[in-house]
Design a protein around this nucleic acid. Structure first.
Length: 278
DNA sequence: TAGAGCCTGCGG
DNA sequence: CCGCAGGCTCTA
């Protein structure tokens, strides 16, 4: 499901609904999530139970939550199919529910993830940025402290392989996934197969600007719902209607009319208009 | 730096 | 039935 705009959309509903509420109950499925790691229920109970959720934020595709007076930070990654929902305790639990945080005031945060590519971690608040998994993340594309064009150009110059693959590498830039990599390359008019190191400073700056515009627009439309994505209340995103290339193989380019092609790069589908993207 | 692998569900 | 899916990790 989730790239930066989808995670941001979830954050913006989860945070106000749960901030300041105490965690009353912690329940975890016993099934393994990504890497065979089950939800660390006992550690979560120790770290969270009885404490107020003080702050939620996002880093790349990770959702992070700090509790008042706690030394640990809850980190959630939604993988491909993960959803985080706010529901009442009485509502039936969806299949593949892996984590439930019961909050004071009678709300529950529920993590549902059919494919189990997501993760639930408890991180040391003091070492947060120095330890995996956050230490490995590159700069954010948006907001304060965001990646700057010159640094982006320099990083690209050092890379091997196609620009599309580079955009998916979270060490270069955190939060971009397959949809927005394709969309931003279209917006910038850059062929996804071009070697990353071949882009000049001007092209790198144009690509970064296109990424920012695309991600910002997607956030304003509450993300792209192809199948699973919804905000904390279950409201679907609307950006899928605005996709220019992703998922449109064979359909005419909205700009020039040439058919959108589907390629395979790094074992993922790439969508592009090879007339507009050079 | 590619490719396989991890999982389930869905659409062709 | 097969192939494919919004991610990431490990292996050659």
């Amino acid at each position: 499901m989730p790239e930066l705009p989808e995670v941001e959309t979830v954050l913006r509903t989860i945070a106000p609904a749960s901030r300041g509420r105490r965690v009353r109950r912690v329940w975890g499925s016993r099934q393994p999530l990504r890497g065979g790691q089950p939800v660390p229920v006992a550690a979560l109970r120790r770290a969270l139970a009885g404490r107020r959720l003080a702050r939620w934020w996002r880093r790349g595709k990770y959702l992070l939550a700090a509790v008042e007076g706690g030394r640990s930070v809850l980190a959630l990654h939604l993988g491909m199919s993960g959803r985080l929902r706010i529901q009442r305790p009485g509502e039936p639990r969806a299949p593949h529910t892996h984590l439930v945080l019961g909050l004071e005031g009678g709300l529950e945060l529920r993590l549902v993830d059919a494919r189990r590519f997501g993760t639930v971690l408890l991180l040391d608040a003091r070492r947060l940025v120095h330890e995996p998994p956050l230490a490995a993340l590159g700069p954010e594309p948006l907001g304060r402290g965001a990646l700057r064009p010159a640094a982006f150009a320099r990083a690209l110059a050092r890379r091997r392989g196609p620009i599309k693959n580079a955009l998916l590498d979270q060490r270069l830039l955190a939060g971009v996934g397959n949809i927005y990599a394709c969309e931003a390359l279209f917006e910038a008019g850059i062929d996804p197969r071009r070697p990353a190191a071949e882009l000049d400073a001007k092209e790198a700056a144009a690509l970064l600007a296109a990424l920012r515009r695309t991600l910002g627009r997607a956030i304003r439309h509450c993300g792209t719902t192809l199948r699973d994505h919804a905000d904390g209340w279950g409201v679907r995103g609307r950006y899928q209607r605005l996709l220019r290339v992703y998922g449109r193989a064979g359909e005419p380019c909205r700009r020039c009319g040439a058919p959108i092609v589907q390629l395979v790069q790094a074992a993922r589908s790439t969508f592009a208009c090879l007339r507009c993207q050079r």
